[in-house]
Design a protein around this nucleic acid. Sequence first.
DNA 1: ATTACTTAGTGTAGAAAATACACACTATAT
DNA 2: ATATAGTGTGTATTTTCTACACTAAGTAAT
Lengths: 229, 229
Amino acid sequence: MEQILPHLDSVFSIDCVLFGFDGKELKILLIERNEEPFKDWWALPGNIVGPDESLDQSASRILYELTGLRGIYMEQYYAFGDPGRHPQGRVITLAYYALIRLGGDKDLRPVSNYAKQANWLPITALPKLAFDHQKIYDKGLEKIKRRIKHQPIAFELLPEKFTLTQLQHVYELVLGKKLDKRNFRKKIVSFGVLKELDEKQKGVSYRAATLYRFDKRKYAKLFGKEISF
Amino acid sequence: MEQILPHLDSVFSIDCVLFGFDGKELKILLIERNEEPFKDWWALPGNIVGPDESLDQSASRILYELTGLRGIYMEQYYAFGDPGRHPQGRVITLAYYALIRLGGDKDLRPVSNYAKQANWLPITALPKLAFDHQKIYDKGLEKIKRRIKHQPIAFELLPEKFTLTQLQHVYELVLGKKLDKRNFRKKIVSFGVLKELDEKQKGVSYRAATLYRFDKRKYAKLFGKEISF
DNA sequence: ATTACTTAGTGTAGAAAATACACACTATAT
DNA sequence: ATATAGTGTGTATTTTCTACACTAAGTAAT
């Protein structure tokens, strides 16, 4: 019911919580601000939604501009709009999260003029964040904790080919608790969305593990059925 | 990362999907528009977010203005912002849902000048909706289907005192499938969030059922534990 | 070649939860 | 008293969850 379109001084932006996994730790991408307000503070990367782009497009563009990445699973999860959240005016922001595999082949493109630097920081030791970004991050983590139980998002954090131990490691980091190896394997294999490859892990100084791949086709067939961890 | 605050011609609104239950059917509140665009079409009630209110406050105000109701469980669930969604300009809308018990004591306040009429229409026979409101509604229904499995939202659709059969009826309507009576009762009682009253249903021409009440205190104690249907 | 080391990979028994299923009870209306 | 309509309950079976420990395989060092 939007009858009238008054001219309002409000700004609509998107902030991204980019979770990254380097094989060891969960990290998020933060930017060190170079301008007031919150000069020298760390903040979530974000930007203003353009006039002719959809929200998802806008989020993809922002992610691309900040990281050079495309084709990443990304989803909006909450809008933050308290009148006082931005000291210079009314800014309503829509938060998106993305899950990204770090390291490996291509590195992230350096990030532009917005900031002194951009860096992947481990979530176990985050600095104080600008604006209400701590709140945005907290809600984002909560969201992926829930979602990893029901949706195949863990694979976004891993290379295309991965071992079950690596997969378990991702679940443990996101959920913040240890899982039983045998039960984990039993369950994850029983979903039937993993394809066991004829390949083994390489470059390790111990017994090499079998590699698996997430099978999108099989997952698509399951649709409707709920996966549950 | 919102450095600059340009002046943008975008409007930010909230649309509400108000689910109502009258003891028999699930309904949603719709408004028949009295102005172009989409004159004479049915639409979701909504309004523009004020400059000094938070999003939740705004949603509560809008709900109050349209229905006279206060203190209703309400939650944002998705932002819709395709550039073409409003023919007269860029309107980004944040969708909220609310669950409301219909009928009974106090009736809804009549709805203002926005519309020719407001009406509760059964979700089994909805008219074509203005704008992208069908999409907003669909997503809302999907959302409460998920949420009713994990959160105690069903009680918002029922009077304070209700029978287990009524509760089951709500679950069946929202989930869109029949449930087994014995198993339903076993499970819902096992959560320990219902208080059995010493009262019985009145005014029925058959054996009167025991009344129950949702016990918020007990539910609060459970926090962390997941309820699952 | 042997050994030490490190991680991969596997099975089972018991507990708990989910499911399927049918009939007797109670209040009211006639 | 009888018909009616919804209430309220128990159990056996299947499925899923949990807890738990050792052998196999490959690498590295000697």
